[in-house]
Deep mutational scan, measured.
Amino acid sequence: NQASVVANTLIPINTALTLVMMRSEVVTPVGIPAEDIPRLVSMTVNRAVPLGTTLMPDMVKGYA
Rank of each mutant, 00 (worst) to 15 (best):
A48L: 13
T28Q: 12
G62F: 09
I11E: 01
T28I: 11
P38V: 10
S24I: 07
M56G: 04
G62E: 12
Q2M: 12
S42E: 08
I11C: 02
D36E: 12
M21W: 03
S42M: 14
T18N: 08
Q2N: 10
V30G: 12
D36R: 09
K61Q: 12
V6A: 03
N1W: 14
G62D: 09
T44V: 13
R23L: 05
V60M: 05
S4D: 01
Q2I: 15
P33H: 10
T53C: 05
T28L: 15
I13W: 11
P29K: 05
A64L: 10
T28C: 05
M43K: 08
M59Q: 04
I13V: 12
S24V: 14
M21Y: 05
V27I: 07
I32W: 01
T54Q: 03
P50E: 15
T53Q: 15
P33W: 14
G62W: 05
M21T: 03
A34I: 07
A34W: 11
I13M: 14
P38N: 10
L40H: 00
S4L: 02
A64P: 15
V45C: 04
Q2R: 14
V20C: 05
V26W: 14
I13Q: 10
K61R: 15
S42T: 12
V41D: 03
L10I: 10
V41F: 06
N14A: 09
Q2F: 15
M56K: 08
P50V: 07
G31N: 01
S24K: 11
Y63S: 04
V26F: 09
A3L: 14
V20F: 15
P38Q: 11
L40N: 00
V49T: 05
D58M: 08
I11Y: 01
T44Y: 12
D36L: 12
L51M: 10
V27T: 06
P50G: 13
N46H: 06
A7E: 01
A34C: 04
R39F: 11
A48R: 14
K61A: 15
P33V: 12
D58L: 07
E25A: 10
M22A: 00
V6C: 04
M56P: 01
P57T: 06
T44S: 12
I13R: 15
T54E: 01
